[in-house]
């Protein structure tokens, strides 16, 4: 295509401003990157970049603070909701969100996530559920599927020995302090679009002061699942969605009626 021809074209999509210029350390095809991008797009679209403070977790997304062009802090493992609470309580007019994986949020940080929701803390949580511990090399997570092989469940998760996966969204939706709790998936374009809309509504929940908001995102880990990036997306659709149904578990009426 000639340059002249390109100049007559409309720009449809470019890297969002709220992402930093850094190259992520994520493995090729890891959907953490998609989740980052969607969060950055929503922050851009809502004009929140200069008032947002993110809270990074421990896990694969430990370096999230390098990847966003917003202020960021790095929490201890599982403690991001507590740290976010401290920030939000002293700076209530800022947009505060945590970005946490399943080990961080649903295992070591279980108390913090339940109580931040119970308090109706006006923050947003982006919860990446990929059913495995990525950073430490593929151990069993609280969301690992029954029968799923990991380095710490080498014969497949035996529910008799190590219990069942935890459905965080369903549990958190029982909290009166929660304003918006949904589960989405990142395994194909249609679901990614829905995920983005959910992230938008979660941040809208916070901006409208309607309490705790969380978007759980079914995400892939091609490296530790030992499949190709595209096969990993198929795994989400075939195996994760049946265990973790994609649904709206709690939506504040004001958000249900919101046009975005």
């Amino acid at each position: 295509m000639m340059l002249a021809e390109k100049q007559t074209m409309d720009l449809i999509y470019q890297r969002p401003e709220s992402l930093s210029d850094a190259i992520t350390h994520y493995c090729p095809g890891c959907t953490h990157g998609i989740a980052h991008r969607l969060v950055a797009e929503v922050i851009d679209e809502m004009g929140l970049r200069e008032k947002t403070i993110g809270v990074a977790p421990v896990g694969c997304s430990v370096f999230a603070y390098n990847y966003f062009n917003t202020d960021y802090v790095e929490a201890a493992h599982g403690r991001a909701p507590a740290m976010a609470t401290g920030i939000k309580r002293v700076l209530p007019d800022r947009t505060v969100y945590t970005y946490q994986g399943d080990g961080d949020l649903a295992s070591i940080g279980m108390a913090e996530i339940m109580h931040v929701a119970a308090r109706g803390e006006n923050i947003t949580v982006i919860f990446i559920n990929n059913a495995i511990y990525g950073m430490t090399g593929g151990q069993m997570a609280p969301t690992t599927l029954p029968g799923m092989r990991t380095t710490s469940s080498p014969n497949g998760r035996d529910v008799e020995l190590s219990g069942y996966p935890i459905r965080m969204s369903e549990m958190l939706a029982t909290m009166d302090g929660a304003g918006y709790i949904v589960r989405r998936s990142l395994h194909n374009p249609a679901n990614i679009r829905k995920a983005k809309k959910a992230i938008r509504l979660a941040f809208e929940t916070q901006e409208h002061g309607l309490g705790f908001s969380m978007v759980e995102l079914l995400s892939s880990c091609p490296t530790n699942w030992k499949v190709t990036p595209n096969e990993a997306l198929t795994f989400i659709a075939d195996h994760m969605v049946p265990v973790f149904p994609l649904d709206d578990f709690k939506v504040h009426p004001a958000i249900a009626n919101l046009k975005v």
């Binding site: 401290g86 309580r89 002293v90």
Partner: peptide, 26 residues
Amino acid sequence: RAFVQAESEVAAINMVYGAVCTGKRA
């Protein structure tokens, strides 16, 4: 000013951590 009775001392100190990162005394 901000007061939270945290769910544990673990959470309490991490709330302090968050608050002091903003430059406020906590």
